[in-house]
Design a binder for these strands. Structure first.
Lengths: 204, 204
DNA sequence: ACCTGAACACCGTTCAAGT
DNA sequence: ACCTGAACACCGTTCAAGT
């Protein structure tokens, strides 16, 4: 008996269930997602354009959730605000990183957020040719720290004895607050470096 | 007629073909890999433990190729040497990034290289609790810049008008040398920041 | 318009059978 | 020891059929 009186699915329901599925650690896929929604895989295609579109939807949904209003203020505020938000996103949803990495960003909301950041950098006097690189750094910085916060023990798994790494991995097991501190220090360093770099250009 | 006089496959042949396959942009998988090697998919399982093991093999092979001998010298030399090598790796093989990201590192050679870097940082006076974070940053920095160098136009694809991003993307099309310059500047900034951070600790 | 169920091409992996 | 070919469970996607 298909087609109940009220719709079982919507784009939002699909996106949220997809995020839950990825976070659960279960193998991500259309079939598992349909199962979780109590629905046939083919039903999803009435609302959404397939697996890749669902992943792009997840990116958009999480971005809107973690970077809610456009961060306003000077470029330093925009950068630190964006990086902190991104890092929280990646730290709380580390398992979506492998899904979205390397996939072209098309979601208009996400594009707008990167555009906002790029504009702030240009306004701050960063030369055009370096803006995208800095945006890439900022993003990579957030990803790197997010993954570090989430799962240091799942990143490296040494079978052979190590001089330093093995000890640090076991020590890091309960080091979330320390990772927080390191992140803030690193972010401060990053901004300071950009400030120096920009002032150096100004002085020419 | 199975089993020719001389072996068709070896771990090295499989790893190299896998890297070529990923670089080609063709969908990566066991079947495509076997096709490329002129062999049945099931043949691969005589030499290798399945898809994930092949991917880990690719990581190991590329790491050995780009970081050949252990970088020696003071910690600054170790860091800059490692980051430059990693960035070249990611820039010349951007399509393997989505394959290896988020997958646990087990290859002994790769573990040894990260261990080497971690040891250099500890010897330099970086507190234990921050070493893994810095290693994560360094890695993320290399990935971010590698991806930026390889495919700025494939990272963002705005459908809606943007104030800054769209212009930068088209401008960046032929900006590989400029990206090189930005990378070196950023690396210099990174090392300088670490130096300040370490000296600050020393002074306490 | 929305959901099902059957069907399709393809995927990674196992394993008996050959040399 | 190494490769094939058949088989398996599963994947993403399409589409006619139902309401």
């Amino acid at each position: 008996m298909p087609r109940p009186r009220v719709n079982l699915l919507s784009v939002e329901l699909i996106a949220d269930a997809a995020i839950e599925l990825a976070d659960s650690g279960e193998q991500f896929g259309v079939n598992a997602l349909a199962r979780r929604l109590g629905v046939t895989p083919s039903s999803l295609y009435n609302h959404v354009d397939g697996k890749d579109a669902i992943i792009e939807l997840m990116r958009g949904r999480l971005s809107r959730r973690y970077l809610p209003a456009a961060v306003t203020g000077d470029w330093e505020t925009v950068i630190t605000g964006t990086v902190r938000a991104l890092r929280r996103l990646y730290a709380e949803h580390p398992l979506i990183v492998p899904l979205i990495v390397g996939k072209t960003i098309t979601d208009p909301g996400v594009i707008a957020q990167y555009d906002h950041l790029a504009t702030a950098l240009v306004d701050a006097g960063v030369p055009d040719g370096e803006v995208l690189a800095i945006v890439a750094i900022v993003d990579a910085y957030a990803i790197g720290f997010g993954l570090d916060l989430a799962s240091p023990a799942e990143v490296w798994q040494p079978d052979t004895p190590t001089t330093t790494l093995g000890r640090l991995i076991t020590d890091a097991a309960r080091g979330a607050e320390r990772s927080d501190a390191a992140f803030e220090i690193g972010l401060e360093m990053l901004v300071a470096s950009l400030r120096v770099r920009r002032d150096g250009l100004r002085a020419r």
